[in-house]
Design a binder for these strands. Structure first.
Length: 524
RNA sequence: GGGGAUGUAGCUCAGGGGUAGAGCAAUUGCCUUUUAAGCAAUGGGUCGGAGGUUCGAUUCCUCCCAUCCUCACCA
């Protein structure tokens, strides 16, 4: 905070001193609230006659909140206070509250937090308000707040004047954003409802909530660069988790049949509209199930979250209508490519696919040109993702895209060994990625539990890492040991919560669904 | 990391080679049912930071910082 005081801050400090000199404690310890703004408004009934009106005056409510507007008119004033539920107007008259209280009222500013006692009435212009009989200063604010004004037009349209709109200030000082911009709070209320709903769905299906380490000595379960930190006493490097997958699988090995965990994952990568270095995922694992079970549960969880948070499965994201109603479309990755490009990639040679991509100016990492599976995956991303607006499970990926997923059930084990020797053959795995609005919303497998194949695939990945392919994770011997002990047939899911919340709240940027998105620190 | 845009009063913005302007907010006065309250007056700015060009820079140039958009990266 800079130490230079603006005239407005100086003035507020003077008012603070004046309040003290009047014997007012500007920071008292407690205030008894009997009603919030919404309760006051919904609980008011217009009196039928004079005597009923008189009776209502005996009914004193007490509310508390932050002053959001003041309209002073000499010896009487109107003001709004804002609490978590909304706004309530109060009317204060010098004759009624007395000289001292009115003087205190005049020392208040927008942003101060006060308690108001009084009876409820309806003003001439029709607004249910508190007729103030007592006023308590609860917190004097010494920094000015942006003043946002609302205008309700004759057609009932709401116009916001001078909104606090600078996104940088909004993210850096989210507390101001929350005070001043009503729709912001709404986004986070919905976020909480979405998470609660998903937990309810998982609980309903007898999943068990667990907690696994954030600090890991070996990171894994995804392809991403980690954040590195140091443990001083142990003298070792630790990594902030990029995924909790390998730990949840250990729990399946340990005999928990259905587990889930909501976690922050940390990935040391670029930041953009759909990526923040720390983000929230829920992962769940279900023993004795396959990826079809996961698809069913995934679409159920999302559909139910939409109903619980919004009351509908029909959403509009930035102008696009999307319906989250079950069942969702299921589309094999190779069929998606065929539909879009007409290519039958399974029967094409690696060189032919690469040639097609070059001819059509589809960029790909030259290091994968010898890997047919990765070529197919790149071709899919470049050509098909843009069409995946309505909820779609893209299923059955090339094995090269992940070492943790089980090959499709139609292959025999000897067939897999045979196919692996031929670089023009692609093994497909039982994987799906749910797409909505072109975004991957998650990832799921029929989990690989064959310890021999698991070790082989992880070793291949480590080797490729040495060859310079982008990101791979180090070998986790303890995880392999767990798989060797034996993991039952299992399916698992990761679901990106932030992107789901973006969709359901029509938020343009991931930063709009994170209370405190990462910002570069400002110098001094 | 590449490209583009932005940064002026507490907030939202306009302006432009001769050290700045509006609305809201603030201060003072009037005002006892207002609601973007009203009327009148007043104060408030190192024009993101550092250099350079110039008699003179907030304006032009370079660099830096921050933010947004976009591409790359991140399956």
């Amino acid at each position: 905070m800079n130490n230079e005081q603006t005239d407005q801050v100086k003035r507020r400090l003077e008012e603070l001193e004046e309040l003290k000199s009047l014997g007012v404690n500007p920071y008292p310890h407690k205030f008894d609230v009997t009603h919030n703004s919404a309760q006051i408004i919904s609980g008011f009934k217009d009196p039928a006659d004079e005597s009923e009106a008189e009776k209502q005056k005996q009914n004193i409510v007490s509310a508390a909140g932050r002053i959001s507007a003041i309209r002073k008119m000499g010896k009487a004033s109107f003001s709004h206070i804002k609490d978590q539920e909304g706004k309530i107007q109060f009317y204060i008259k010098k004759d009624e509250v007395g000289e001292d209280t009115y003087r205190i009222f005049k020392l208040l500013d927008i942003g101060d937090i006060i308690g108001v006692k009084g009876y409820v009435f309806r003003t001439k212009t029709g607004e249910v308000s508190i007729h103030c009989t007592g006023l308590t200063v609860l917190t004097k604010s010494i920094q000015p707040l942006p003043v946002v004004k609302e205008e309700i037009t004759e057609t009932g349209e709401k116009i916001i004047h001078d909104a606090f709109a600078d996104v940088e200030l909004r993210y850096r000082q989210r507390y101001i954003d929350l005070i001043v911009n009503d729709n912001v709070k709404d986004t986070f209320i919905k976020r909480a409802a979405i998470i609660k709903s998903i937990k309810n769905t998982l609980d309903k299906h007898n999943f068990f909530e667990v907690e696994t380490p954030t600090l890991q000595s070996i990171y894994g379960g995804a392809n991403a660069r980690p954040f590195v930190t140091k443990h001083n006493a142990l003298g070792i490097d630790l990594y902030l988790r990029i995924s909790n997958e390998l730990y949840l699988k250990r729990l399946i090995v340990g005999g928990f049949n259905r587990v889930y965990e909501f976690v922050k994952d940390f990935r040391n990568e670029g930041i953009d509209r759909t990526h923040n270095p720390e983000f929230t995922q829920v992962e769940w694992y279900q023993a004795y199930g396959d990826y079809f079970d996961s698809m069913n549960l995934f679409e159920e969880a999302v559909e139910q979250a939409a109903i619980d948070a919004l009351g509908t499965t029909k959403i509009n994201y930035q102008g696009t209508d999307i319906d989250l109603k079950r069942p969702w479309k299921r589309l094999k990755m190779t069929d998606a490519i065929k539909e879009k490009t007409g290519l039958d990639v399974i029967n094409m040679k690696r060189a032919e696919i690469a040639e097609y991509m070059q001819k059509n100016e589809i960029e790909f990492d030259k290091r994968i040109s010898g890997n047919k599976g990765l070529l197919i995956a790149s071709l899919f991303e470049a050509t098909c993702e843009e069409d995946l607006i309505q909820p779609t499970f893209v299923i059955d990926h090339p094995i090269d895209t992940t070492p943790l997923c089980k090959p499709m059930r139609e292959y025999s084990l000897s067939q897999i060994d045979e196919m692996k020797k031929d670089p023009e053959q692609v093994i497909f795995v039982e994987r799906f990625e749910p797409y909505i609005n072109k975004w991957e919303l998650g990832n799921s497998y029929t989990e690989l539990n064959d310890p021999i194949l698991q070790r082989k695939l992880l070793e291949e990945q480590v080797e490729r890492g040495r060859g310079g392919e982008a990101e791979t994770h180090p070998m986790d011997e303890d995880f392999l040991n767990a798989i060797e002990i034996g993991m039952p047939p299992t399916t698992g899911v990761g679901m990106g919560i932030d992107r789901l919340v973006m969709l359901l709240t029509n938020s343009y940027s991931i930063r709009d669904v994170l209370l405190f998105p990462l910002m570069k620190p400002l110098d001094s």
